[in-house]
Design a protein around this nucleic acid. Structure first.
Length: 486
RNA sequence: CGCGGGGUGGAGAAGUGGCAUCUCGCCUGGCUCAUAACCAGGAGAUCGCGGGUUCAAGUCCCGCCCCCGCAACCA
């Protein structure tokens, strides 16, 4: 029994989703769909969701003069809609204000080794305006960079987690890939971080400082959990950890594979804090964390002050989900940062999707209609992908190099075009060599089916359209799969 | 001496020792089945700079310059 559990991170919902999170959803979706094809749909479980407990959410709601719970509910819906706009095949969507989550986070806290959670007083420079702590060097001339006020020295008693006692174990698990971090550069970063020495970290806030928002610390009403402590437990909670549901047993508490897909900014939380918490609670660890890079827009970091945010839902409304999926997967190197620009988007759309895949389908189906009587018979022994190409795609998929996989998959489009040009079926038609044409059309159609097979995880709709078209009894010229933009 | 990533034809990238590759753009030619799409050929790179190792270096070593991230309770 081979089970596969995959998750995205749960973004906090203080603003509408931007294109960076769309990247994560799409990458995770490709992996999920790919695994379903291999393992069968029932053996794959794909989770995404939203973090509603972050203090930032409270601040954002306040700014709009709304109640926090109403605000986060509405914002979570926007993230849910993004997933559906992008045709993401998630099995579930968890909100961290749900009971199953609160109960699970509580259970996880209680399951940690008693020695690992202790009370300690913490003091730091706290800016009331920002509602956050600053270190000395973050201050500009001794004042908060945002509010230009001198922060107060605040002392508060919090619960701490004994991360320090897991230093050795974590180093071991990560370096021998028992807890695998992809790409390797991220693994090295984490190892370097661990070797510098791990300090215990605070896992609670005073209820006051948390603005009375969050998951209460069990047995201590004066404190709520530090948002990361509860947030990470969502991966267990969606499966029914608190109630020990069968889903939890099948997908987490067994030997199946568990993969987290995250952005580079939260690597430490997923690769250090999270496994330590699980170790403390005596729970199985995820097998792997895949860390993708960030999306820049026109070469610049996405930032609200620059006003260069790109709304992925708008993009989908304008161009459709598949072109957006394609762009994110093909143009952004999955292991690194990548850039979005409208010009590049249009370029990819035109050359790869419209003039490439779509046009080739039109050519082939049109010739089947015109020269082949609408009949297409799948060719025996034709493989669009040589064993070398197929294995290159496999390797790319297994290492989450989606851009490399797509490049290899799309090579075949060019090959079909070149063969059409070389054989000139339209001339053969004049000479009435219809049997020969039929053979060629069988071959090209079969090659297109091979392409669509590999495209399924990436472009599920287009793949299906290609397949459906070539399975028609009386094939007519296909409608443009991706119409030209102008 | 903080850590990491990167500097390859006009643009974007691939490329861990053996004639420098791909996509887009540009030029020329071809084709007309196709979404004015497609195919072939071509021009264009002293592979950031300076040394070194080697029969041979974009690729290994040393030094330097420049760009971009990250630097622990803050998503």
């Amino acid at each position: 029994m081979s089970r596969f559990y995959i998750t995205t991170a749960i973004p906090y919902v203080n603003a509408k989703p931007h294109i960076g999170f769309a990247l994560e959803l799409v990458q995770a979706d490709v992996i999920a769909r790919y695994q379903r094809l291999k393992l069968g749909g029932e053996n794959v479980y794909f989770l995404t969701g939203a973090d509603e407990n972050a203090l930032k959410n409270v601040q954002a709601a306040e700014k709009e003069g709304r109640s926090t719970s109403e605000y986060v509910a509405e914002m979570s819906d926007r993230f849910r809609s993004l997933a559906s706009a992008l045709n993401i095949s998630n099995n579930d969507f968890i909100r961290t204000t749900e009971q199953r989550h609160v109960k699970g986070a509580t259970k996880l806290w209680q399951s940690c080794k008693p020695d690992d959670i202790y009370k300690k007083s913490y003091s730091g420079l706290y800016c009331v305006g920002c509602e956050q702590y600053y270190t000395e060097d973050e201050l500009v001339d001794g004042v908060c960079p945002d509010h230009k006020v001198k922060p107060e020295l605040v002392t508060e008693e919090n619960y701490f987690f004994k991360l320090s006692s897991y230093q050795h174990k974590l180093e071991q698990l990560i370096s021998n890939d028992e807890f695998k971090i992809t790409p390797e550069s991220r693994k090295n970063e984490m190892l370097a971080f661990i070797r510098r020495g791990l300090e215990d970290f605070s896992i609670s806030r005073s209820r006051e400082r948390a603005r009375n928002w969050g998951v209460p610390v069990p047995g201590d009403d004066s404190q709520v959990m530090y948002v990361w402590f509860d947030a990470l437990s969502n991966y267990l909670n969606a499966l029914g950890y608190a109630a020990n549901d069968s889903l939890y047993k099948e997908f987490w508490d067994n030997s199946g594979r568990k993969l987290h897909v995250i952005g580079k900014g939260i690597t430490r939380f997923h690769c250090i804090y999270w496994p330590a918490m699980l170790l403390s609670a005596g729970l199985p660890l995820p097998n792997e964390v895949f860390v993708h890079g960030y999306v820049t827009v026109d070469g610049q970091k996405i930032s609200k002050s620059l006003g260069n945010t790109v709304d992925p839902v708008e993009l989908v409304n304008k161009y459709g989900s598949e072109p957006v999926r394609y762009y994110l997967l093909r143009e952004i190197p999955a292991w690194e940062d990548g850039d979005y620009s409208e010009a590049k988007f249009k370029q990819r759309y035109e050359s790869d999707l419209a003039n490439g895949l779509g046009n080739t389908l039109s050519r082939v189906t049109n010739m089947i209609e015109k020269f082949g009587n609408g009949k297409f018979i799948q060719a025996e022994g034709v493989n669009a992908y040589t064993p070398a190409a197929a294995s290159a795609i496999e390797i790319a998929m297994r290492s989450y190099r989606f851009e490399a996989a797509l490049l290899a998959i799309f090579n075949v489009i060019g090959e079909i075009d070149a063969e059409i040009e070389k054989n000139k079926p339209w001339e053969m038609a004049k000479e009435e060599k219809f049997n020969d044409i039929q053979k060629l059309l069988s071959k090209w159609g079969t090659m297109l089916l091979d392409v669509s097979h590999y495209l399924k995880p990436f472009l599920p709709d287009a793949a299906k359209k290609i397949e459906d078209k070539l399975r028609e009894h009386n094939i007519t010229k296909a409608e443009p799969l991706f119409p030209r933009l102008n």
